[in-house]
């Protein structure tokens, strides 16, 4: 039995043209926990996240070496079906990206791609995941409205519901609260926390306090190198590396 929801990096190097943006990264992200990747801007956090679901494929000059192992399979192996890899991971981006269609269709988008057109199957599914993202009560009477009429905080929770609806094992978040007001941020954070018992969650953030609020594990990335990784209580409280300490105390940012 393959253990689902595990994510490991082996000797991962990423280049943009001649620039090396990620340098020999080795990392095991524990399942059913919330791992936060911190580091100053430009350190390669977002690139790292994009390696996990092969969105880097879309960038012409990007080149990946090494292995990203999901469920005991290197996703960069030739012959791997990319769409199925991506289906295993939900993505929350910096600004919520609602698809140009109704609220309902946003959530049903993923299942429909997989060939599920049956309303009797889709209806409860949409409700289930909208509830899970805490949006159901707010939108249940206007499921057929265009999704871009929602407030930006609601949009981000809709993106969460949409990501959950493809039944992923892993949730990736690229500073998912950076465009939101404090109230909505808290709301999204609360839902992420409640989801971590069933999902492996990887968040990129540059807000240290957010890392402290959410993280079980913390990875500190600096200039493309993984400096430190460990339980949040260790990395954030008593970091071993001086660079981590400098970042946490606000000397480098």
């Amino acid at each position: 039995m393959v253990e689902r929801g595990r994510l490991s990096l082996r000797n991962l190097n990423v280049y943009y043209g001649r620039n090396q943006v990620l340098k020999n990264i080795n990392l095991d992200i524990p399942k059913n926990s919330l791992t936060v990747i911190i580091g100053p801007s430009g350190c390669g956090k977002t690139t790292l996240l994009k390696c996990f679901n092969r969105l880097l494929d879309e960038i012409e000059e990007a080149r990946v070496e090494g292995q990203v192992i999901v469920d005991d399979q290197n996703i960069y192996d030739p012959g791997v079906e990319v769409t199925l890899i991506r289906k295993k991971m939900g993505l929350l981006s910096q600004r919520p990206q609602v698809l140009p269609m109704s609220i309902y269709d946003n959530v049903a988008f993923g299942p429909r791609l997989l060939g599920q057109k049956d309303k009797s199957y889709l209806n409860p599914l949409v409700e289930k995941y909208l509830r899970l993202a805490g949006l159901w009560e707010e939108v249940k009477n206007r499921l057929n409205e265009p999704a871009n009429r929602l407030s930006i905080g609601q949009q981000q929770r809709l993106c969460l519901a949409r990501g959950l609806a493809v039944e992923p094992e892993i949730i990736l978040g690229d500073e998912p609260t950076s465009a939101l007001d404090p109230q909505s941020s808290r709301n999204v954070e609360a839902h992420l926390l409640s989801l971590k018992t069933n999902y492996t969650i990887v968040l990129v953030t540059h807000i240290l306090r957010q890392a402290k609020r959410l993280a079980d594990y913390v990875a500190f990335l600096y200039l493309g190198e993984l400096i430190e990784f460990g339980p949040a209580s260790e990395v954030l409280v008593s970091p071993r590396d001086p660079r981590t300490r400098a970042y946490i105390t606000g000397e480098i940012s």
Partner: peptide
């Protein structure tokens, strides 16, 4: 969960 999964396998060639 498994129904969607089966369908995914079934639909994959056509989508490709």
């Amino acid at each position: 969960m498994d129904t969607a999964w089966e369908k995914a396998k079934f639909k994959r060639p056509k989508r490709k």
